[in-house]
Amino acid sequence: MTLSGPLDGTVPVILVHGMGGDRSTWRPLARELRGRGRTVASFDLRGHGLTGRSDSYLLDDFRDDLGAVVDHLGAHKVDLVGHSLGAHTALRYAMAQPDRVRRMVLEEVPPMPRDDHDLAEAIAPSATLGERIRGVGALVRNPGPFLRFDRALGGPVTDAFAVVEPDWWCALSRVTAPTLVVSGGQRSFLPPRHLRDVAYALPAGDFMTIDAGHSVHRDRPREFVGATVAHLDV
């Protein structure tokens, strides 16, 4: 885990990366938040980066790992920023521990399927051809996340999103944190209407589109950082 910024009792911001990435993906945002006086923590999810491989990659495992980081910080409340699988992880944590989350930004958060129609759209953390092409530059600049990523987790995560879970949608009502849901627009594999539905199902949800594809924070960093900073009220 990487922790930086002043430990002065302010609400820490925890950054949760997506599948196939690691904590280094957040450097521009972390730098901006630190410059504004925030304590920032980022970590590698299990099976990623410098975190060891696991024999279990359930969605709730990732949630519990995030919970361990929150507990380690010893903060009563935290702000969460997550991308893709990391956003889904943050949302699961906020469902389970609503009193521990002050505000959230969820970038390209994949929802659980509500019914067979959703299931047919195969909404799961993945990458389209265009996304892969846009990611080549990032891979060349920083091959570490790709090289250290445990390919064994792809199957369990994808399989988890192939199960209809209407109760997951009902549980969104438990999230009390004001939450900004960021869609990458039509270039993303995640249909924006589903992310809009997530935002509007949250008691204090808001929705915005930054037309960048699935990795908004990587491909449109200035807009993403600006929206995140504004939402976290930094």
Results as ranks from 00 to 15, higher is better:
192 P>K: 05
59 L>A: 05
221 P>T: 09
122 A>S: 13
41 A>M: 05
194 H>Q: 15
90 A>Y: 06
3 L>F: 06
75 A>G: 09
196 R>L: 14
222 R>T: 12
181 V>T: 02
82 G>K: 01
3 L>M: 04
154 G>R: 11
198 V>S: 08
191 P>R: 09
108 E>V: 08
144 G>W: 13
199 A>K: 08
81 V>M: 11
74 G>T: 07
161 F>Q: 06
91 L>C: 10
58 L>P: 02
34 R>K: 13
140 V>I: 15
105 V>Y: 03
96 A>Y: 01
125 P>N: 14
28 P>L: 04
211 D>Y: 11
18 G>E: 10
185 G>A: 03
177 A>Y: 02
76 H>S: 13
76 H>Y: 08
61 D>W: 02
123 I>V: 14
48 H>I: 03
72 H>G: 11
178 P>V: 14
126 S>P: 06
133 I>W: 11
53 R>Q: 11
1 M>K: 10
21 G>I: 00
34 R>G: 07
16 V>I: 13
123 I>H: 00
29 L>N: 05
4 S>D: 14
166 P>D: 11
55 D>M: 12
130 G>I: 06
53 R>T: 08
214 H>F: 10
13 V>S: 04
215 S>C: 07
152 A>R: 14
54 S>V: 09
17 H>S: 03
197 D>Y: 13
228 T>N: 07
175 V>T: 08
18 G>V: 09
87 A>H: 00
